[in-house]
Amino acid sequence: MTARNEFYKQITGALAGAKFPINTPQELLAAFPNGADTTCQADGVKMTAGEAGKLLKPGDFPFKSAGQVANTILERAGL
């Protein structure tokens, strides 16, 4: 499994219980199980939700699904 696929799986899994749409960065961080400290790791690369949130822009919101969140973060991270 590629790092991108592993990160996608971890991000969408962490947001499995989230209520969508998510309209703000604060709502997104609150949706992760450990907030900004929620961590995903693959192939020696580690990223917290707080770090990932810095890659997002106001125009990215609202998010309508966990997959949309994951794809946006991974594209911005270059994965």
Rank of each mutant, 00 (worst) to 15 (best):
D43Q: 10
G17A: 08
Y8V: 09
E75K: 14
F63D: 03
L55S: 08
F32C: 06
K9I: 14
A18R: 06
Y8T: 13
E6K: 13
P25E: 10
V69A: 01
L15R: 03
P21A: 05
T48R: 10
A31F: 09
G67I: 03
P58E: 08
E75C: 05
A30P: 06
G53I: 01
A18M: 09
F7G: 03
N34A: 13
M47C: 06
E6G: 06
Y8L: 15
G35S: 03
P58D: 03
G44R: 05
G50F: 01
C40G: 14
N34T: 09
A31Q: 05
D60V: 01
K64S: 12
I73N: 08
A3H: 11
K64C: 04
K46G: 11
T38M: 13
A36L: 03
Y8N: 02
L15E: 02
K57A: 13
L15V: 09
F32T: 11
R76D: 05
F61E: 08
Y8R: 13
E27V: 10
A77P: 03
N23G: 15
P33D: 02
Q26T: 14
F32R: 02
K19L: 09
R76N: 11
A49V: 05
A42K: 10
A52G: 14
G35F: 01
C40S: 13
F63E: 00
L28G: 10
Q26K: 12
A42S: 14
G13W: 09
